[in-house]
Write a protein that binds this DNA or RNA. Sequence first.
RNA 1: GUGGAUGUAGCUCAGUUGGCAGAGCGCUUGGUUGUGGCCCAAGUGGUCGUGGGUUCAAGUCCCAUCAUUCACCCCA
Length: 424
Amino acid sequence: MKAIKAVKGTKDILPWEIPLWHQIETLCKELFASAGYQEIRTPVFEKTELFARGIGEFSDIVSKEMYTFQDMGGEWLTLRPEFTASVIRSYIQHHYYQRASLHKLWYFGPLFRQERPQAGRLRQFHQFGIELIGSEYPEADAEIITLACDFYKKIGLKDWELHINSIGNTKDRLNYIEVLKKSLTPYVDDLCPTCQDRFDKNILRLFDCKNELCQQILDTHAPKIIDYLSEKDKAHFEEVCEYLDLQNVPYQINSKLVRGLDYYTRTTFEIKSNHLGAQDALCGGGRYDNLVEELGGPSTPSIGFAAGVERLIMALEAEEKASVQLSPPDLYIAPIDNQAYKGIVKYCTHLRNQGFIIETDLLRRSVKAMMREANRKQARFVTVIGSEELNSGTLTLKHLETGQEYPVNWDNLGEFLEKTILPF
RNA sequence: GUGGAUGUAGCUCAGUUGGCAGAGCGCUUGGUUGUGGCCCAAGUGGUCGUGGGUUCAAGUCCCAUCAUUCACCCCA
């Protein structure tokens, strides 16, 4: 029989990897809650149209990367390729704006994109992120960016950079694109083939090119988008920077940072790790002041970010910060005969109910093997139980680290563990 | 969709000019009765990714195919 493997681009999160995932989820919960953000969970699939309208029909994600299918009623549905569209759909559908004028949300979950897998890119991957819906002011931008940075600081990641930029409102950006085209037209023939293609399709993508010659041409001949912003947007961006300075958040203004999703406006930012391969963006975000309205809601300025969990884990591993948190047993009980196996069960349950982590043998192994197992599991105490211990009412707990033995009455077991575990 | 790399034990990998399928780690058991780690010993474990071809003989050479992986594209 041929074994079945996980689908290309998908991965099991293995039992021994789970503690790190819990650590990340817990930090999300604590950090975002500390700023008043509430968790939101939306369905993993939505109507295809939501993403087409939200992300942009001609974006790569929508045009060739979505898992789209028809349900039995013939409706086109899509496994979500990103979170923001779903969150905004929920915001509009449930009229959040009638409850309050500002909403602060966070999320964590799986996303799906049908791309060729490589380092830092999977077909099912996970993101967490936050959305701040309803404020147009630079304080909002600063709060989002600061929270993102705080996350990486608190998780223990060291070697990363924050890049920020402003791509202005739609009108200014279209104007800039015209100027950019004009100033680069003389050099089109020197660009790499993909850039020549991009020149007509989506000229802003030129900035992402990894070809050195293309970058040189851009550096010397491309105007900066910041110089083409309206006075209002320029002032907004300067204020965002000012807020970051106030908190000593280090950043680089990167005029080449143009994000790939169509809905972004004004502030955009990205956090890059210095330890990842080609896919080095840990986290990306920005303003999307028009999205709520475009999806059928009231005009509502908003900003948010999304962060890749697998990439974070890769970066933590590269920096050797992926700490393994085990939950070792407080006590490993090793029964040596049939009676002992039967005699200990009620104590196991009782101690577990008291909150202790108790493990016992389930393979009827030798004492030596059970001791080895207790040691492997890093149990704090181990006890060998035979008829003597059951009849006399006294057992001996051995502290594995020191080898010290402690006689204890069965009735005082919980009390003993409680008292003794703390000092160790 | 395009290009490169790699497929040998559960894991990490050796395997020479074609000539008996290997190591380390892991796992199991034992080293005297009911006590772990270290050490020692034995055991467990492989259709050499798959299918063809060349050859007396293929893990090794040739062709095809699949899988994995990295990169392009794009994005978290």
